[in-house]
């Protein structure tokens, strides 16, 4: 049914929908009472916590009805005349899904079967149908049908339908908190930690190797052209780490690292990581 909703054949559609959820009002023929109820849901476990300023509105061209939230978590709209209404629940703490509520005269719906289905004996009675609606979409594009039931409670009249909470409203921005963990989440810090581990761990590893393997390894190191380069610089090919000059290292020989830190860091993490260092 939703796929056909491109068209605006409202009477036809609504008659279909109302056939699915028939609800005949008992009040006078020109207007009815619609009760919008907020049931507990997983997004709103206790509707009694909603503030008293919560209101619901029925809006259409030339008409605007509003009702405050009642003790029983309902909004009671009396004297709702026929029309197609946009229904919104305005609440400070929670957001609600917008609804479309059509109040139709049974005789106007055109569909004799549907009208007879509901109650053929009360000509001019009103029927109410409700759907979820999508803002900014075609008004004929209806969402899920909201079941409409006749009011059954003592002293109640008209029909009852449920509003659906869509979530809690979060008004505040979270400030990014300074924490040690956030520093370690930074990839640059992680990279430098790994390289530092290698830097200090390798000599230990080599020392702990058994002499044969070590000799073999050193032999291979000599063949390595990169190593030759590094060895030429330090003049001690056998143990490049042994006389590592911290100052020289920081000054120039590995300028890539500070560059990396300055250049590619982004956002807040950069500032914090630098501070920490």
């Amino acid at each position: 049914m939703q796929l056909t909703a491109f068209t605006l054949l409202l009477p036809f559609l609504s008659s279909l929908a109302s056939a699915r959820s028939p609800a005949q009002t008992s009040s006078s023929s020109s207007s009815t009472t619609v009760t919008l109820r907020i049931p507990p849901s997983h997004l709103l476990p206790n509707p009694h916590t909603l503030p008293a300023s919560t209101r619901a509105t029925f809006t259409t061209l030339g008409k605007a009805l509003a009702a405050p939230l009642s003790v029983a978590n309902t909004f009671v709209f009396r004297n709702v005349t026929p029309g197609s209404y946009l229904v919104d629940v305005h609440c400070a703490t929670h957001a609600f899904v917008p609804l479309r509520v059509d109040v139709l005269r049974a005789v106007d719906s055109g569909d004799v079967d549907a009208a007879a289905d509901v109650d053929g004996n009360v000509p001019g009675g009103l029927r109410v149908a409700a759907w979820e609606t999508y803002r900014g979409n075609d008004w004929g594009n209806k969402g899920e049908v909201i079941p409409v039931t006749a009011a059954s409670g003592p002293g109640e009249e008209g029909v009852v339908l449920d509003a659906r909470a869509a979530g809690q409203k979060g008004y505040f921005m979270e400030r990014s908190q300074f924490s040690v963990l956030s520093i370690f989440k930074n990839p640059i810090i992680l990279l430098s930690l790994v390289s530092m581990g290698l830097f200090f761990g390798m000599p230990k590893l080599i020392e702990n190797m058994d002499p044969e393997m070590r000799a073999e390894w050193e032999e291979r190191q000599k063949e390595n052209p990169m190593n030759a380069l590094m060895g030429a610089a330090s003049g001690q090919p056998a143990n490049p780490i042994g006389n590592f000059d911290m100052a020289a290292f920081l000054a120039g020989s590995s300028s890539a690292k500070p560059d990396e830190g300055n250049g590619s860091g982004s956002g807040k993490g950069k500032g914090e990581s630098k501070k920490k260092r």
Binding site: Q2, L3, A5, L43, A95, V97, E132, Y134, N137, D138, N141, G143, E144, R164, A166, G167, Q168, K169, G170
Partner: peptide, 21 residues
Amino acid sequence: PASRLSLSHLLAAALTCTLTY
């Protein structure tokens, strides 16, 4: 408008998303 059948669940999920984050 084309993604018509994306039902209200999606809408609700998306709305919640908007509201909380």
